[in-house]
Every structure is written in structure tokens, then in C-alpha cells.
Amino acid sequence: MDCVTGVGDQFWAQTRNGLTVGSIYAMIALGYTMVYGVLQLINFAHSEVFMVGIVASWHVVNRWFGVVGPQTGSALFLVMGGSIGVAMLASGLTAITIERFAYRPLRKRGAPRLSFLISAIGASLSIQYLFALMDGRHSLLFITLPNLQGTAPLPFPTVMESQPLFSVFGAPFTNRQVLVIGVAVTMMFLLDAFVRRTRLGRGIRAVAQDPETASLMGVSIDRVVVTTFFLGGVMAGAAGFLYVMLLGAPSHWAIGFLPGIKAFAAAVLGGIGNIRGAMLGGLVLGLVEAHGTACVGSQWQTVISFMVLVAVLMVRPQGILGRG
């Protein structure tokens, strides 16, 4: 009864919450699903690609722009544009680097799938602990590591003052929530269009379907793989910026782990390898989390999410939209 009352009373507000965080899950999930689609590989280091986006956003806003309070007008546009742009680039380059050093050597040697998995986990941990050392106090092989995070938890400053814009059935949407959903939907639309309408996108789809035939038809596998990693990284970088702007989160080397796991679950939920499935899976996971909180309490949030994941996969093992 409490569950029904809770969900009923807070339905629209929790739907808003679910869509907001689900948009971020969806953007991260795209990286998992695209790489899987092309290489049949779960890139477990993708959560660190997301983390790099957060660190880059934090660094740009705090250190480059020195933002300490809310911005307006062109300054707001410049700070947000600069931050998300650098975050996307940093994450994209990180993803390419991971592919170059953790996966390509194995791919060239025809290594078994298990080797890719171990390499992915190794890359993930290496990046995490490398960033853990970047607090201005450590050196690595006689090189002083840059101070990217600082020793104290400095939060992401309030770049944009939170203000309610409009209400849907009594649930107010703030400008930050609208920005998150808006940017996420726009970027997902653009990615979907890129993959479906461009020559390179066609290459990605061709390699995902049959890499050998695609290769014989003149598609450069390496180029497609690098593009796929880069695009997934760009989406994760944008998600990183939106995540810290929404939550005011301090930069932390382990910050990517949980959202990464949830985004991976979202990719599986929607149908791993399926781009639209990842988008849908992220939104569904966000909604389940939010309404689950209203139903049985927030401490069970993750449990409920993964129970729903298991239940869906039992009925439909290929995910909601099926594998790509």
C-alpha cells in the first residue's frame, strides 16, 4: 500500500528524476553497446572514460575559467560550451588510447575473448589508480604527475543557477534537468543519424554485421574501430559534464564505477549492440530506479534496478529491442 501510495503521489516528479538520470545512463551506455556491436567486446574501462570526462569538466571550470559562482549570458555559454567540449575531447581521446594499447595488440594477434576481458579490467584499474595519484603530491617514474584533482574534495561549482522552468502535472523541471535531458536527446539523435546516414556510420554497421566481408569490401576495420571508440568516448565525456553539473559532484577517481556498471546494465537491458536499445535501456533503468525509490525506499534502489534487469532478461534474453 505504501508502495502504491508512494508511486502515485510522486509519479510525475519521480518520472522527471528517472528521465534525467536515465539520460545520463543512456549516453554512457552507448559507448558499451557500440564497442560491443563492432568488436563483441565489453569495454569495462568505459567507466573510466566517463570519469575522465568528469575530471576534465571539473578542471576546465575550476582551473581554466576559475568559476566560483553562477554565470549568465555569454559567460555561461562559454563556460558550459568550453567545459563540455574539452570533456568530450578528453574522453574521446582516452577511449582511443585504451583501444590502441589495451585491445588492438590483442586483436592483431587474434587473442581469445577472455584476454580482452582481462585487458579491459586491467585498463580500468590502471586508469583509476593513475588518476588517484594525480593530486599534486605524487610522481611516477621520475615524472611529477599533474594536479588534476587536488587533495580535498572540491565540488563542481554552480555554473548555472538552478531555476524552475515549467511544470508537468505538478512536477517542476529545473533548467539543469531540462539541459541534461535536452543535451542527451540531441546528442543521441545526432549519433543515431551519424551511424545511419553517413559513410563512416555505414562502415560501422557493416563491420558490426560481418567484419570479414566489410573488410573485403574496402572498409578499414581499424578506422571503424577507432571511430567507434571515439564516438562512445565523446558521448561519455558529455555525460560526465552533465553528471557533475547536475549533482555538483566533486571529482574523484572512482566516480565512474557505479554509473558505469549501471550504464552497462542499461545497454544489456536495451539489447547489447543496439544503439537505440542502449538509449531506451538507460531511460528505463533511470525510471525504474526513481519509481523503485518511491515504492520501497532509496536504500533498495540498486537492488530493484538489477532485479528488474534480471526479470527482463529472463523473459527476453536479447534485451528489450534485441541485439544489434
Binding site: G6, D9, Q10, A13, Q14, N17, T20, V21, V244, L246, L247, G248, A249, P250, H252, W253, A254, I255, G256, F257, L258, P259, E289, A290, T293, A294, S298, Q301
Partner: peptide, 16 residues
């Protein structure tokens, strides 16, 4: 976890 918690659901519950 090192991850900042998304309190949106709890905040909605407090508001309600």
C-alpha cells in the same frame, strides 16, 4: 564508492 549520490528521488520524497 567515491561517487556522488543522486539525491533527486530522496529530495522528491522529502518534498512530498
Amino acid at each position: 564508492t567515491g561517487t556522488t549520490v543522486d539525491f533527486a528521488s530522496i529530495i522528491t520524497d522529502v518534498q512530498a
